[in-house]
Amino acid sequence: EPLWIRPDAPSRCTWQLGRPASESPHHHTAPAKSPKILPDILKKIGDTPMVRINKIGKKFGLKCELLAKCEFFNAGGSVKDRISLRMIEDAERDGTLKPGDTIIEPTSGNTGIGLALAAAVRGYRCIIVMPEKMSSEKVDVLRALGAEIVRTPTNARFDSPESHVGVAWRLKNEIPNSHILDQYRNASNPLAHYDTTADEILQQCDGKLDMLVASVGTGGTITGIARKLKEKCPGCRIIGVDPEGSILAEPEELNQTEQTTYEVEGIGYDFIPTVLDRTVVDKWFKSNDEEAFTFARMLIAQEGLLCGGSAGSTVAVAVKAAQELQEGQRCVVILPDSVRNYMTKFLSDRWMLQKGFLKEEDLTEKKPWWWHLRVQELGLSAPLTVLPTITCGHTIEILREKGFDQAPVVDEAGVILGMVTLGNMLSSLLAGKVQPSDQVGKVIYKQFKQIRLTDTLGRLSHILEMDHFALVVHEQIQYHSTGKSSQRQMVFGVVTAIDLLNFVAAQERDQK
């Protein structure tokens, strides 16, 4: 057995438009009618409502009807409940999964919650491996369901041993009777949507819809739904939504950006999952974080739909894509998950301010006199920076000697690579993860907040409520011999709460 199987392995699926269902090699399930009293909570997966979006479509000038398939009504709160249950049931049916076995899954959280929910009911041990950027709410729900959680670096490539995929496979090879159901490759993922989600949409719309818009992560949702719609409703256009920084969209030119990270969760990847059939997507749109969270908040405030950030991405694209539809036509959007997962993220004004998705003037509360002053007023001194090749031991000596707790790590040209902190280095040394002679590049981390000289002290204040420091950066445009230009970030300084307090105190003292 291989040590790991690539999540982007070539698909062996034989589905073709027009091929009889009787030739399918898979076990198919028909939607079942729910009894009045459910035998367990797993029976509350599927049969989610279709809700008309009344205000947002009109606000953006849509002539067509805009409908939302509300997947956050599933038992675990997301569309991923469907595939989690289906993968477990299919693994039980073919004898792969037996009582007492362990389920391991690399996930952005929602599939993990679905699997942990099913594992709690069915009696399996469950280990979820997820990147650090995923919300604390997801972690809390997983723990409450009895799952064990392993976190991995957000910026690790999918084929790196440190990625959530790599760590999951390492655990599988170490733990007896453990299984990775593997949402990236498992046919049960798109089949769950082909058999149930798509049929529900067709039934709820009486077979009449002209466009379907869905955000894409593993691709199982859009693949399964689109294949069924292509068979039953061939005139329906399928629109895929991919965040900026991901590479799922086609044509490839759409993916060209210097951005590699994004805040919206559960969609987009740096590889093409095996289950994603991009041939059934008629057109791709890219979405960005700001519009995703703005539209998610709009869905909550104006439509009462308590959905997550990827739902915002989907609707932001839908109001663009559906401009081509006329009166009497219908566009369906998939709202994948609930706001429950993001209470401390985009639902929080403070978080939105820190990330730059909300401006101070958007909030009406009274601010102190210094709130709208610029960061450049602080008069920061030149920063202490270190090269990635310097040793951890030497870096600790320098920081202690100069009285700093942290320093930016830059390359020879001064471009920011990340940050090192005294606390992080000492804990890594004590844990045996690094040696004093190791290069400081081994303990770089990139989960820090950046701020510009033109940003306000109010925004800085919000950042420092949650973080010990902020890195002050400025952009530099560099022209190359080819005539092309590129933008790079340079370090201007490091600012802490002490710097802000000293500035405010000094100004008030001078005024007296």
Score class of each variant (00 low, 15 high):
Asp467Trp: 10
Glu361Phe: 10
Leu335Ile: 02
Ala497Arg: 14
Phe346Trp: 02
Thr482Val: 10
Leu457Trp: 02
His372Leu: 13
Asp411Ile: 11
Ala506Val: 04
Ala311Gly: 02
Phe285Asn: 08
Ile396Val: 11
Ala470Val: 13
Asp337Trp: 06
Pro408Val: 05
Met298Cys: 11
Glu377Leu: 11
Ser485Ile: 15
Ala296Asp: 04
Cys392Ile: 13
Gln439Asp: 08
Leu363Arg: 10
Phe285Ser: 10
His394Val: 15
Leu373Ala: 14
Phe285Pro: 02
Leu422Lys: 08
Val264Leu: 06
Gly393Glu: 13
Glu324Met: 10
Phe469His: 10
Ala322Arg: 08
Phe503Ile: 02
Gly312Pro: 13
Glu365Phe: 09
Cys331Ala: 13
Leu500Ile: 15
Asp362Val: 14
Arg297Cys: 02
Trp371Thr: 15
Asp289Phe: 02
Gln435Met: 12
Glu401Asn: 15
Asp411Lys: 14
Met425Val: 13
Ile463Gly: 11
Lys320Leu: 10
Ala407Phe: 11
Pro336Ser: 10
Met466Gln: 10
Val409Thr: 14
Thr294Cys: 07
Leu384Ala: 09
Ile498Val: 14
Phe285Tyr: 11
Phe492Arg: 12
Leu380Ile: 10
Ala301Gly: 12
Ala316Leu: 11
Glu397Leu: 11
Gly393Arg: 13
Asp337Cys: 12
His468Leu: 13
His480Asp: 11
His462Asp: 09
Leu500Glu: 02
Leu335Trp: 02
Met419Trp: 11
Asp282Gly: 15
Glu361Thr: 14
Leu373Gly: 15
Met298Ser: 04
Trp369Thr: 02
Glu397Phe: 11
Thr421Glu: 08
Pro388Gly: 14
Pro243His: 07
Gln259Asp: 02
Thr364Cys: 08
Thr314Val: 14
Arg452Val: 10
Arg509Cys: 13
Phe469Asp: 07
Ser437Cys: 11
Ile498Pro: 10
Phe469Trp: 09
Ile463Cys: 11
Ala497Cys: 08
Gly403Arg: 14
Leu363Ser: 15
His372Trp: 12
Glu365His: 14
Leu453Glu: 14
Ile444Gly: 11
Met425Ile: 14
Gln354Met: 08
Asp270Trp: 02
Ile416Trp: 02
Asp411Asn: 10
Asp349Phe: 02
Ala292Val: 07
Val281Arg: 07
Thr395Ser: 11
Glu258Gly: 13
Cys307Thr: 15
Arg374Phe: 11
Ser428Gln: 15
Asp289Cys: 05
Gly403Glu: 08
Tyr269His: 08
Thr260Tyr: 10
Ile239Leu: 04
Leu306Phe: 06
Ile444His: 08
Thr454Phe: 10
Val319Gln: 02
Ile300Trp: 02
Val420Ala: 10
Gly356Phe: 02
Asp411Gly: 09
Val472Ala: 12
Glu412Phe: 10
Asp289Met: 02
Val415Asp: 13
Ile477Gly: 02
Ser348Cys: 04
Phe503Asp: 02
Val495Thr: 11
Leu422Arg: 11
Leu358Ile: 02
Cys392Ser: 09
Glu263Val: 06
Val473Ser: 15
Cys331Tyr: 05
Glu475Leu: 12
Asp405Phe: 10
Gln354Cys: 04
Asp510Tyr: 15
Leu373Pro: 12
Gly441Asn: 14
Val420Leu: 13
Leu457Asn: 07
Glu327Arg: 13
Gln256Asn: 13
Asp499Ile: 02
Ala431Phe: 02
Gln256Met: 08
Lys320Ala: 07
Gly266Ser: 02
Val415Asn: 02
Val504Thr: 02
Thr294Pro: 06
Glu327Trp: 02
Lys355Thr: 02
Leu347Trp: 06
Lys283Tyr: 09
Phe404Ala: 08
Thr294Gly: 15
His462Cys: 10
Ser428Met: 06
Glu412Met: 07
Thr421Ala: 13
Val472Gly: 15
Met352Arg: 05
Arg400Cys: 14
Gln323Phe: 13
Val473Gly: 11
Lys367His: 02
Asp438Arg: 15
Gly493Asn: 15
Asp282Met: 02
Gln302Ala: 04
Glu365Tyr: 09
Leu426Ala: 15
Ser437Leu: 13
His372Ala: 05
Val332Gly: 04
Ser486Cys: 12
Lys366Leu: 12
Arg350Ala: 14
Val420Cys: 15
Ser461Leu: 11
Asp467Ser: 11
Ala316Met: 05
Ser381Pro: 13
Cys307Gly: 07
Leu387Tyr: 10
Cys331Asp: 02
Leu276Tyr: 07
Trp369Tyr: 05
Ala301Arg: 15
Glu475Met: 08
Leu387Val: 09
Gln256Gly: 11
Phe295Thr: 13
Leu363Tyr: 02
Val333Lys: 02
Trp369Phe: 09
Gln478Glu: 08
Leu347Gly: 02
Ile334Lys: 02
Gly245Tyr: 02
Arg340Phe: 02
Val472Asp: 02
